[in-house]
C-alpha cells in the first residue's frame, strides 16, 4: 500500500510539470504585463523596473529560474503585492477557501447522500420525482444566477443573512457562499447516490439482510450505505476539482478574500508568479485529494485493500 502511494505521488510530478509549463506559457502569452497601466511609464523607468523584476530575461530562462525556485519551495515574489511572497499570500488566503470548500463538500455529501437515499428507497413515488427534479435544477442553473437570487431573497428581503462578506457577521456570513457552492454538488451526489443505492438495494446480500429481519433503516445503514457510497467516492475527485474551481466564482460574487479571488485578480493583473503559484497549488491539491480518495476506497472495499 505504501509502495502504491509512493508510486502515485511520483507519477503526479510529470503532470504537475506539464501544468506549470502550460500555465507559464499561457500567462505570458496574454497581452500586457504586470506593470502595464494607463499611467504608462517613461522608457527609462520601465526598463529599470523590468530589470529589477527580471522580466527582461528570455522566457526559457525565466521558466528555469521559476522551476529551480519551486523545487526549493520558493514560489517567488508577487508582482502585484510587492511586499509579500506568493507562498505568504497563498498561506493567508487558502485557509479561508479551504473552510469554504470543506464546508460545501461536507454539506453536499450529507444532503446529497440523504436525498439520494430517500429517493432510492421511495423509488417511483412523488417524493422520488421531486427530489430528482430539484437536483436537476441544481445542476442546470449556473452559480452566478443562483448566488444573487439567494442574496436577494435571504439577505435583502428577509434579512436573515448578511448580504456580503462583513467582518462583524461571524459564522452567518458563510451560510450563503457555502450553500451556493454546494448546490450543484448536492445535485450530482443525490443523483449518483440514488442510482448507486438502487443498484445496491437490488443485490443479493441486501435480500439476505432483509431476510434477517433487520428493518429498512438498519439494512440501509449497515449494509447498503458503504457499497452505495463507492461511486460517490469515485466522484469525489472531480467533485473536489469542481468545488475548487467553483469557489473562484463564489468568492468573486460574495467578495470573499480567498484563494479564488486572488487567482482572478492575479490573472487580470498579470501577476505571473501569483498565477503560477496558485495553479501549482491547486494542481498539487487536486492530486493529493485524489490520492486520499483512492486510499478511502480501499478503506471501504476490503477486496481492493487485501490485494
Amino acid at each position: 500500500m505504501l509502495r502504491y502511494t509512493l508510486l502515485r505521488v511520483l507519477g503526479a510530478i510529470p503532470t504537475l510539470l506539464l501544468v506549470i509549463a502550460l500555465a507559464f506559457l499561457m500567462v505570458h502569452a496574454a497581452p500586457g504585463g504586470p506593470f502595464d497601466d494607463e499611467r504608462a511609464l517613461p522608457a527609462d523607468v520601465a526598463a529599470n523596473i523590468e530589470r529589477a523584476y527580471r522580466l527582461d530575461e528570455p522566457l526559457p530562462r525565466q521558466f528555469a529560474r521559476y522551476l529551480s525556485g519551486l523545487v526549493r519551495g520558493d514560489l517567488g515574489p508577487s508582482y502585484r503585492y510587492r511586499d509579500y511572497t506568493v507562498s505568504e499570500l497563498i498561506g493567508a488566503a487558502f485557509p479561508l477557501s479551504l473552510q469554504l470548500g470543506a464546508m460545501a463538500m461536507a454539506l453536499a455529501i450529507v444532503v446529497g447522500v440523504c436525498a439520494g437515499t430517500v429517493a432510492a428507497l421511495q423509488q417511483g413515488t412523488y417524493l422520488d420525482r421531486t427530489v430528482m427534479a430539484f437536483s436537476m435544477t441544481g445542476i442546470s442553473i449556473p452559480v452566478f444566477v443562483v448566488a444573487p437570487v439567494l442574496v436577494l431573497f435571504f439577505a435583502v428581503k428577509l434579512h436573515w443573512l448578511p448580504a456580503g462578506w462583513s467582518s462583524s457577521a461571524g459564522a452567518s456570513r458563510m451560510v450563503l457562499p457555502v450553500i451556493t457552492l454546494a448546490l450543484p454538488q448536492i445535485a450530482y451526489i443525490a443523483r449518483l447516490t440514488r442510482a448507486s443505492m438502487i443498484d445496491v438495494l437490488g443485490r443479493d446480500f441486501i435480500r439476505t439482510a432483509r431476510a434477517q429481519g433487520l428493518g429498512t433503516l438498519t439494512v440501509v445503514r449497515l449494509h447498503a450505505l458503504k457499497p452505495a457510497m463507492l461511486p460517490v467516492l469515485s466522484y469525489m475527485g472531480p467533485a473536489i476539482a469542481a468545488i475548487v474551481t467553483g469557489s473562484v466564482v463564489v468568492e468573486e460574487i460574495f467578495g470573499i478574500p480567498g484563494l479564488g479571488q486572488f487567482f482572478i485578480r492575479a490573472a487580470l493583473n498579470r501577476d505571473y508568479t501569483l498565477v503560477l503559484g496558485i495553479v501549482v497549488f491547486y494542481a498539487a491539491l487536486i492530486v493529493l485529494l485524489n490520492l486520499i480518495v483512492d486510499v478511502l476506497y480501499g478503506a471501504i472495499d476490503p477486496r481492493v485493500r487485501y490485494r
Binding site: F205, R207, A209, Q212, L222, H223, K226, D301
Partner: peptide, 27 residues
C-alpha cells in the same frame, strides 16, 4: 413490514444459493 421483520430470521430462516453474492462483501 414490522410483522414480517419479527418473523424473519427469528421464526423463519433462509439460506440462499450463492453465498458470495448473499453475504455482504464489505462487512
Amino acid at each position: 413490514e414490522q410483522t414480517l421483520d419479527r418473523i424473519r430470521a427469528r421464526r423463519i430462516g433462509i439460506v440462499f444459493q450463492d453465498p458470495m453474492q448473499a453475504l455482504n462483501p464489505y462487512l
